[in-house]
Design a protein around this nucleic acid. Structure first.
Length: 771
DNA sequence: GAGCAGGACTCAGAAAATTCGCC
DNA sequence: AGGCGAATTTTCTGAGTCCTGCT
């Protein structure tokens, strides 16, 4: 990729050489400084945004692409096949050394072709198909893969047999649960150690290696789905009589139950910043008044005159009391929640017990939007069974609604993955109960996501050269698309769908960028053609970045900004819909977000390659891993506020190092003494003493090194959140392969939850895996 | 046949809960 | 050993993306 855009946030050119180890961190720090933690104000608004989006003239070229429905159809077919393709690749996975080779080849041959922009698009389509075929032949051709596949098939058969047997034996979920509960109780009484082991073993057996099974039809998500329905939030418990609400400083006022409940929502949040915001207060007060009795409405006229302090204190105290509970009490509480988890937290999906992600309905409360949300403070209503739609298989035990209630609906739709849903009253959108990330349904999708990103790797060079060509297109729309795609690729920006004005915080992504969000500098910081981005992205997290761009991009941006107001759309001829349908034509399954996944994963792989030194010890290798991870987090703009305790804990760590240094000196001195002693006595005892001291010294040295690494890591990690990218953007197989290759235990990079989520990758990736 | 709303799903950081590690 | 603060993990639910099906 000689001049393809680099996926580097600072855009300072090539990052891959090992020499630049700290490049990412430095840039991150720099950007961090510039950005500040506060969120950008948003007074200036889109007075006249209408100007843009409506003008969707259709460029002839786009039309010509669409004119062959035949092609479209085949493609559609292929895409579905693509799902299967993923599956077929599974067999080929283990020997991904060969995989990589083929990939390279494919990449190379792909590059050779495309020259003219016109014919390019078709070539791309073809390439997409070619790609699929390649994948298939590859899987077939590889011998070891074949063998392994056969083996897997056997295993699979056995597995499913086992599963069905088990099902027959155990029958419906409820039965099974009771037995397990029994087991558990027993285990508490007897020696925990053994039982723990047993339990683990059992769990091991229970693990469903779905990735070894043939993938089923795409649309149908399950054949069997059985569960207990959601666990409902506990009902409101009235305040004790001695906790009072005051209005206007007068004598206490007894509130009706409903009014009181809502008051507690506000009271609980009293020391949160939210309650200082006017929008929050207004929204709350409006919704609160609506639920009041007429009499209450008459009296309570202003929020300022409401005194929630006693109520607030009551909850603070209650919280503390709960924390101060004796051990046994706490244990009891925990057992109760465990029981609930056991009963409601799992479902049966196609014969396997799967963990549910969120099995509780959301409790009522006050809506907490992020950033400057116009609806913050509004009352989130309690979800009742009458609001809930249940989804499960026909022949299953239909969940029983709480007594005296019924479900809104029970349906049996196996083309969706959710178990229950309800409509939430703030945005009037649907909420779902779905499975845990460790489940087959989620895992398979995740895997597929990374496979799509890997396919992008094969065509990305062509796509890049195509959009570079499009910078000079005669069509405005095409140019805008090309520049937007360049940003999405180079800076890993999100697509940026249109949002309804006034319904949510004013945030943007690439396609919804407005003129006010970028500044152009012909020269800045000694670099030419600089673009300064400053906008609020998802979750109102500020994106601030100064990037040098190529000259045509710069010129185009200037053009796009001509005669526009700050509030106007930068890409007024572009929508995520048209961008994505264009991308879909270039490669089946391709959409804007795939670039984020692709660039994140490829960055990790490159950085790991550049930063890992096989000679290093595990701690140093982990530092390298974290740095690579960090590079991705910076790219994706995953930030966190510096922890409040950062300085303090840093000092503590430094103190520890000092102490360790002293220990080291002492140990050295002791060793010397012991040696002298041995020289004098020459007996076994003194020799043993020397050995002992030597060992101690080694241990201390190791500890010291570990501490030093910790400091570096911590400092560099100050304001960057690694979790999101690790969980959502980095192909876990890259990490697994790295661990295997360099002898790092997987537990060092993935905790238990993460290992569960990525079980498929841990099981299937070997050390040669190439993204 | 297009454009739009709504549905289904992924991704996101804050906050709560739990574990860790030190004295 | 046990208590305490910090670190890590888990939970929670809001905020995106993308696609489909309807008009």
């Amino acid at each position: 990729m000689p001049e393809g855009p680099r996926a580097s946030p600072g855009g300072e050119g090539e990052e891959t050489e090992g020499g630049k180890k700290h490049g990412w961190a430095e840039k991150a720090a720099k950007r961090q400084k510039e950005k500040g933690q506060e969120r950008k104000g948003e007074e200036t608004k889109k007075k006249k945004r209408e100007g843009g989006k409506v003008r969707h003239e259709k460029p002839p070229r786009f039309e010509s692409l669409k004119e062959e429905p035949e092609v479209e159809k085949t493609e559609e077919g292929e895409r579905r096949g693509g799902g299967k393709g993923v599956k077929e690749e599974e067999g080929g996975e283990p020997e991904s050394g060969g995989d990589g080779g083929i990939k390279e080849e494919r990449e190379g041959s792909g590059l050779g072709k495309s020259e003219s922009v016109e014919s390019d698009e078709k070539v791309k389509v073809e390439n997409g198909l070619e790609d699929e075929k390649d994948t298939k032949t590859k899987a077939k051709g590889a011998k070891p893969a074949k063998r392994r596949k056969a083996k897997e098939e056997n295993a699979r058969e056995e597995k499913s047999k086992k599963a069905s047997e088990k099902l027959e034996k155990e029958g419906p979920a409820q039965k099974r649960k009771t037995t397990e509960e029994g087991d558990k109780k027993k285990s508490k009484k007897t020696k925990t150690g053994e039982n723990e082991k047993e339990k683990k073993k059992k769990e091991e057996e229970d693990k469903w290696k779905w990735w070894e099974e043939e993938k089923t039809e795409d649309k149908v998500k399950w054949k069997q789905l059985e569960h207990k329905g959601p666990y409902f939030a506990p009902l409101y418990e009235p305040l004790p009589d001695n906790v009072k609400f005051y209005y206007d400083g007068k004598s206490p006022m007894k509130l009706s139950l409903a009014t009181e409940e809502i008051a507690t929502f506000y009271a609980k949040m009293l020391d949160h910043e939210y309650t200082t915001k006017e929008i929050f207060q207004n929204n709350f007060f409006r919704d609160w008044k609506e639920e009041m009795t007429e009499k209450e409405q008459e009296i309570i006229q202003s929020l300022d005159k409401c005194d929630f302090k006693e109520i607030h204190k009551y909850f603070v105290d209650k919280n503390e009391a709960r924390k101060a509970l004796p051990k046994e009490e706490k244990q009891k509480l925990k057992e109760e929640t465990d029981k609930i988890q056991e009963e409601y937290g799992y479902c049966i999906l196609d014969g396997h017990r799967e963990k549910i992600g969120n099995f509780k309905t959301e409790p009522p409360g006050l809506f907490r939007g992020r950033g400057n949300h116009p609806k913050m403070g509004m009352l989130k209503k309690r979800i009742m069974p009458e609001d809930v739609i249940i989804n499960c298989s026909k022949d299953s035990q239909i969940p029983v609604p709480p007594e005296g209630h019924k479900w809104k609906e029970v349906r049996c739709d196996n083309t969706v993955t959710w178990l229950a849903s309800w409509t939430e009253n703030i945005q009037n959108s649907l909420k779902y109960i779905m499975l845990n990330p460790s489940s087959k349904l989620k895992g398979e999708k995740d895997w597929q996501k990374y496979e799509v990103a890997r396919r992008l790797k094969g065509v990305v060079d062509k796509i890049r050269s195509q959009y570079r060509g499009d910078w000079k297109s005669r069509e405005m729309k095409t140019r805008q698309r090309a520049v937007a795609l360049y940003f999405i690729d180079k800076l890993a920006l999100r697509a940026g769908n249109e949002k309804e004005e006034g319904e949510t915080a004013d945030t943007v992504g690439c396609c919804s960028l407005r003129v006010e969000h970028i500044k152009l500098y012909p020269e800045l910081d000694g670099q030419e053609h600089m673009v300064e981005f400053d906008f609020l992205g998802k979750d109102s997290i500020r994106y601030y970045n100064k990037v040098p761009v190529e000259k045509p991009v710069f010129k185009n941006l200037k053009l796009f900004m001509q005669n526009k107001d700050p509030g106007d759309d930068l890409f007024d001829r572009l929508s995520t819909g048209s961008l994505n349908s264009y991308l879909q034509d270039l490669m089946p399954g391709l959409s804007a977000k795939v670039f984020r996944t692709y660039n994140a994963s490829i960055t990790l792989q490159e950085q790991l390659k550049a930063l890992t030194n096989p000679e290093d010890n595990v701690a140093a290798k982990l530092l390298a891993y974290n740095r690579a991870n960090r590079a991705v987090a910076v790219l994706c703009n995953h930030q966190r506020a510096t922890p409040k305790t950062f300085e303090k804990s840093m000092q503590a760590l430094q103190a520890k190092i000092d102490a360790k240094n002293q220990q080291l000196e002492e140990a050295q001195a002791e060793l010397k003494r012991a040696k002298a002693d041995h020289k004098a006595k020459k007996d076994v005892k003194s020799k043993e003493a020397v050995e002992k001291k030597k060992k101690l010294l080694e241990k201390i040295k190791e500890q010291l090194e570990k501490l030093n690494v910790q400091v570096t890591d911590k400092e560099e990690n100050k304001q960057i959140a690694l979790g999101t990218s690790k969980l959502n953007y980095l192909d876990p197989r890259i990490s697994v392969a790295w661990c295997k290759k360099f002898g790092v235990p997987i537990e060092k990079i993935y905790n238990k939850t993460q290992r569960e989520k990525f079980a498929w990758a841990i099981d299937m990736a070997d050390e040669d895996f190439e993204f």
